[in-house]
Design a protein around this nucleic acid. Structure first.
Lengths: 218, 218
DNA sequence: GTCTATATACAGATAGAC
DNA sequence: GTCTATCTGTATATAGAC
């Protein structure tokens, strides 16, 4: 490795440190609340260094999103090998589970994108665009069901957005808790997390979306 | 009416003008984007006058919320005269319809509250608190169902939040459109509104939440 | 109460030494 | 590439005349 290679490696290290610090800050204080200096300080770098790697906070977020995509595509592709019938109990649960897991693994990014979409206001349609993009897969499956003559509760575009929106808002609102370990007597000083486990959320949402409040037919 | 009465009336008029201007600005540019000066300018008043009536933008929002509550309580009380069984198709549709109508009538306030809740970040739990507060009625109904031995898809607190969250996010994301009038050739220059009518949203969400994707039992 | 003018505060972004 | 120091823009909030 040449000398320039070492420099490159150090620069890459700084970039990684900034990204990691940003994820922590976004998760803890929210995307809107964290200042550029919060990120650089948390990463142990100077303010000016930030702009050597990213043009702005929004630019950094896009970089984090790209990272997430390359990582998430694997999980999704895996799930997509199964046939596509969202009215099958196992399959809808699997889809919800994958979506939820991706959201939890990338909670800082997901919540940040959520906040970012609201920055442009309700009239901009930015949130709708985001929902539409994030639920493309749901929508394709619903389109397929409709073609099969299945009687959906409404337009696939609307239903898939509603489903995805429900998941997104829950992912944002449900603050993660130390998940039911043997030693959860040890409490951090912070606000108590949501009382729901990931499994409980996935099961509940899957059931609700499959059978609704009426429950499965007897 | 005394002279002071006239002054009071003028002051009240200014306050009303500020509120109305704020609603317009919130709807058009979003809560976070609108500056105090945007509101005062739109209301045709000076910047300094704002603080004679409200301590801050957040304070103004709370005032708008109070207005909304006094107005909405009527609609809700009306609906609450009916018995409580969310697994009855007519009743769940009615509940969704009332919630949706209140949101649409107060869209500027609802969307502003939504943005405001995100200001504090995901870890604050502010959004969860808001969801819990806004879906209290749903939750009570679900608690009741559970007591009756009905098999719900999950914990009432979680399910009601999921239902309310779905409605909230749709209310934010679905930008209102001139609703199917005879002369909708006349397009404003702005972004095309959502292709869904209020009725379509209400019907679709009600069906989804009652029977899920599987649809009603045959 | 309302206005104009201004003070305060701070985040985003840049300049230039090393 | 990284640092320190600084500049700029802008939103909030206040001061003081009317």
């Amino acid at each position: 490795m040449r000398a320039t290679g070492v420099r490159k490696a150090m620069a890459a290290e700084t970039e990684a440190a900034l990204k990691e610090a940003a994820r922590r800050q976004f998760a803890e204080h929210g995307y809107l609340n964290t200042k550029i200096t919060d990120i650089t300080t948390a990463a142990g770098r100077a303010t000016g260094s930030f702009y050597e790697h990213f043009a702005s906070k929004e630019d950094l977020l896009q970089a984090l999103l790209a990272d997430m995509h390359t990582q998430a595509d694997g999980q999704i592709d895996l799930a997509e090998h199964a046939p596509h019938d969202l009215t099958d109990p196992d399959q809808i649960r699997e889809h919800i589970a994958v979506a939820w897991d991706v959201m939890r693994d990338n909670r800082p990014v997901v919540t940040a994108l959520f906040e970012s979409a609201l920055t442009e206001g309700p009239a901009s349609g930015a949130l709708w665009d985001r929902l539409a993009a994030d639920t493309r897969i749901f929508r394709e499956h619903l389109d397929y069901l409709r073609e099969q003559g299945h009687d959906l509760p409404g337009d696939p575009a609307l239903i898939s957005a509603a489903m995805g929106g429900m998941l997104s808002i829950l992912a944002y609102a449900l603050v993660p808790t130390a998940q039911a370990g043997p030693c959860d007597q040890v409490t951090t000083g912070q606000r108590p997390g949501s009382p729901f486990t990931d499994r409980e959320v996935i099961d509940s949402v899957a059931k609700l979306l499959l059978y609704g409040l009426a429950g499965p037919p007897r």
